[in-house]
Design a protein around this nucleic acid. Sequence first.
DNA 1: CATGAATGAGATTTCATTCAT
DNA 2: AATGAATGAAATCTCATTCAT
Lengths: 204, 204, 204, 204
Amino acid sequence: MSPRTPEQFEEIRQQSRARIMEEALELFARQGFHNTSISQIAKAANVSKGLMYNYFASKDDLLEAIVRQEIEQGEDLMEILSSTTHDPYEQIQMIVTGAFQMVKTDLKHWKLITMLALQEEIMQRMSELLRQKTERGLEDAIRLFERMGVPDPKAEAYLFGATLDGIFLHFLSTGPMGVDYPLEQVQRSLLQRYEPYKTTTNED
Amino acid sequence: MSPRTPEQFEEIRQQSRARIMEEALELFARQGFHNTSISQIAKAANVSKGLMYNYFASKDDLLEAIVRQEIEQGEDLMEILSSTTHDPYEQIQMIVTGAFQMVKTDLKHWKLITMLALQEEIMQRMSELLRQKTERGLEDAIRLFERMGVPDPKAEAYLFGATLDGIFLHFLSTGPMGVDYPLEQVQRSLLQRYEPYKTTTNED
Amino acid sequence: MSPRTPEQFEEIRQQSRARIMEEALELFARQGFHNTSISQIAKAANVSKGLMYNYFASKDDLLEAIVRQEIEQGEDLMEILSSTTHDPYEQIQMIVTGAFQMVKTDLKHWKLITMLALQEEIMQRMSELLRQKTERGLEDAIRLFERMGVPDPKAEAYLFGATLDGIFLHFLSTGPMGVDYPLEQVQRSLLQRYEPYKTTTNED
Amino acid sequence: MSPRTPEQFEEIRQQSRARIMEEALELFARQGFHNTSISQIAKAANVSKGLMYNYFASKDDLLEAIVRQEIEQGEDLMEILSSTTHDPYEQIQMIVTGAFQMVKTDLKHWKLITMLALQEEIMQRMSELLRQKTERGLEDAIRLFERMGVPDPKAEAYLFGATLDGIFLHFLSTGPMGVDYPLEQVQRSLLQRYEPYKTTTNED
DNA sequence: CATGAATGAGATTTCATTCAT
DNA sequence: AATGAATGAAATCTCATTCAT
């Protein structure tokens, strides 16, 4: 009888929004943005087509919401790292391990962002959002390599990032979900590159 | 006024086909496959919509033709390399230089292939085609690193390939056509990695 | 905290109804009936969409209610006139002055009715309502001109009414709310037409 | 076998375009713009929905095309008048007769324009177009009344135009297509107004 | 009495493909 | 071999209306 409270409405909204975004991410990542229809998303999210437009002004808007969320998450990687160890090699190790872990479990986000990054038209709308995140990650990496004593930290940071993304790209391009991509081997090999910069004190 | 010979007809056909494929590649790479219409391609290729279907049975068919051509070209990279030098370091050098050269001038092909590779649905149709090419390149690289004496040649080959593709990916994702991506610096740094394996004595 | 009396409830109901109708009139007049959504009206009336259906069975019903109200008001123009003066010229004067006054302050009603009158489909539902009002006004005017001694009172009444509505139509069509429509001048000129029929001697 | 010539294509285009515009005008005038769907128009024009967009970029564009055509026609009313007679009273007579003739046969155009003129939102897009036409007609009328020797020619022109449009408005609002609107009577009465200004030479 | 989430029918628009010439 | 008009299916989007709370 009594109407729902604004809080209840807000919760319902959040749930529906989240479900839609989740399914949309899934589908966009698998099929691409332009190859995924609102109908598909609605069906996947178990929601009527019409409702989609209650939450997102347009398909473009939905995409933007997803990307924005993606970027706003994972904000504080470096902070987490710093709180665990101050040794730069160990931090690299953690980054690599973390990234490879992520890649195995949940590659949707990376895939979507990468696909978008390759489409100029879409990029223009997103570039502001993406630029920031990329830049921050890069700067963190540069500082890391500086502290490790690598000769050309900036170039190394670029190379490091490129290698990681390149691995994911190949992993994803190899058949259905990277079967027979030698992920572990590659990971080990990548880390070995930076072993020379391991801090001499207290190591194996 | 005299009727054209069958050969002339055939040549005209080939020219039209080529122009269509070229413009389609351009557009697909810039806007994505699903976001590019037949009309756009026809206009860009200065050809009527109807004529498109004289050359390609469907939009999908056009895409496949482009990808197939892409793959069939550049077939013989290693052969060219081998004919120039037998020193593996120099060959790596040439590969890297060549790739970085290509990236600056004509990235369309790489971009299109990569975009496609990320879309499962499209991939399925193409995977046969792509797998071959990737595999062959990989094997070549493994042999190269073996000859260089790198500890884990297979992993190194994977890393090497990933790094190259990662660089291109980042280059493309950085603003309009990679302005302010430090391509030269990165190239130098990448090559330095393999300098330790330079054969000091000049062999061949 | 004490429960409201039924009368209070009824009053609140009436207020809400009135506010909705007012805002709807505003929007319908500005944007047209089919171009105005229930959501817009609800927002403008500061009421939930659902509640709208508590007061009006449908959008059509809301429109009908507005038109009906419009018609039921202003019922007794002639009565008012008669009570003030019996001189027909003065009555014409009052009608004209009144109409021109109305036009400057609140043209919404006239506009809405006119827009509706031009749409056959809508008209059919409303025509019963509108016919009456028009007819009564017309008859009043005919009698007026008869008493003034105009040669063809019926035709004159038609002309008079047409001129008034035509003026309003032009006034509304001239830029934003009739800026630079010479309303005063036109009003004066219109009245001059009937000056010959002014009773020089004060009659009745 | 041989392709159609550009001229043939152009002719086909013009025919289809014309048919679509004609039917759209009919429907817009009867039902209103926002209350007429592209599907309805397509069906009426015996054409697929898709084809509509071959000729008009949008529904709005279609409307604009119709209005523009409407305005560009009937350009030279005054020129025609001048070529027939120089007597201003006779010209007025001709205008009135012509307008009343038009109103009986083909009121669609007037109706559509009038409906649009009442919708602010639509008007904004069209106002440039409409303003011109209105202004020109008005100026012509003012000059006419000047030559007739009417006391306040400007006000008279406004009144005259308003009366004409008002008559049409009432005619249209009276049941299905103005049955029982005394059009002839009103016409006669309107003309009588200007008889005093008939040129004294050679009259009845 | 009141809310706004949710629906579904239908509107506008797009586009690969066909076809008469 | 070549054209672009024409189609139809499907995509995006809108909105009056219903309903659980």
